[in-house]
Design a protein around this nucleic acid. Sequence first.
DNA 1: TTCTTAATAGTCACTATGACTATAAAGGTT
DNA 2: AACCTTTATAGTCATAGTGACTATTAAGAA
Lengths: 256, 256
Amino acid sequence: MTTPAPDGYDPYAYAPFAVTVDLAVFTVREARLHVLLVERGQEPFRGRWALPGGFLLPRECAEDAARRELAEETGLGPDTVGGLHLEQLRTYTDPDRDPRMRVVSVAYAALLPDLPEPRGGGDAASARWWDADGAGPLAFDHDRILADARDRIGAKLEYTSLATAFCPAEFTLGELQQVYETVWGVELDRPNFRRKVLNAPGFVEAVEGPPRRTGGRGKPAALHRAGDATALHPPLLRPPRTDPAAPSSATEGHDR
Amino acid sequence: MTTPAPDGYDPYAYAPFAVTVDLAVFTVREARLHVLLVERGQEPFRGRWALPGGFLLPRECAEDAARRELAEETGLGPDTVGGLHLEQLRTYTDPDRDPRMRVVSVAYAALLPDLPEPRGGGDAASARWWDADGAGPLAFDHDRILADARDRIGAKLEYTSLATAFCPAEFTLGELQQVYETVWGVELDRPNFRRKVLNAPGFVEAVEGPPRRTGGRGKPAALHRAGDATALHPPLLRPPRTDPAAPSSATEGHDR
DNA sequence: TTCTTAATAGTCACTATGACTATAAAGGTT
DNA sequence: AACCTTTATAGTCATAGTGACTATTAAGAA
């Protein structure tokens, strides 16, 4: 039996499921990883916070649905959302993940620079950024989705230029380093970080006419923008866990 | 709006979808990557080959469905299939991917050692191994799924011990190297490969009492079995593409 | 025996890296 | 104005990992 339904059968005979997308939208503010959450206004899990998301429209693919929901929750224009990097994480299919009905959910991760006031103007009662560590128990299996999303993002910083998605169009290497340190939860040596970033071709490119960023306390930093590379050669490897007994949060052991 | 359905609504009002799993089951035989395909006996795509797969049962998660289908197609016992490494790849949601109805499909990859006669005894009219390169145009979007699966497997060989899943319980380093060369489509230097494998703690462990494999023409090789590590430190990096103008098969924009 | 094949051991130059030290350029303090 | 603090940037050095090799060993085949 292959993917499609046998012919001539009523589709409803084949266990119809509801299909949704869930989004783990991240940003880095004040050296902390933040995630966009919405408060549930109804049962089940009334009053609990959850990842934004929603149903696929009848003729919509999951990525389009994710962009649509993201625009609704963040109030970002469709142009902004359209160019955004959306990464499909995995799909959650536990039959009991929603107590009311059978729902399978395709999870996506999105990365945003720190926006002035990015909270929602959509249909969510309330939406706000939460410190990703302080995000209490979420509705449904969203704790698990969030953990998976953090694992994936952390891993992809190693061998892709994804980190620049957390930064504004022009940024300093210090800001980029801050992204790495925040997502990985480690401190990095500044000269070494700098050397590695500049040695990875296409990761960042210097902004010309030596303008420099104001505001800070120390020596002004040169500005950079994202280069055209997506893969990093050589990769920026995460320092190995010094912690002796730390069961890594197992991105992908089993479906839940 | 969050993942679950609004309350008190008829679930059928929310665009019911059929949900399936599709499996890219790989093995290495005669230094070629092979994939398990089934022939379609009905329209659409009658006579075309397709990835094995099928519908989720009403109270079954996708991974269970994948194992069930895998057992049906390969004739492997549930015990064998139960211990197998199944990797969720991604989910395909294009509204037009099945011309008859709306079907979203969760794709999995599975790796098997070369089995004596692994072709199906299940409900598929005919199932057989195909050279992964020669697999003609497949039904539905299965060419794309297959390509994505190959990309993912190739990438995971770099930083996980996944390659041992292609090998029998005891294997030589030459056989393991053959797996890497076949999946990556490159030739590797034998002494260097050996050094890297043995330097990655927990990748393989030597089988004791120096038995050696018979049959071959050269010096007998020591036997090894898979170690307990899943992640490789340091990783076994793929040699960089020397090909100047080769648009890498680009799984998913940023992926990998 | 000799040839061929494959496994295994070892060498060597080069690259990337972690851990540093040093200098430069800004604001703040006294 | 003379310092201190802070941050950016430049450079050093020992070491691990790697690619490209050469050499040796142990089997079957000619």
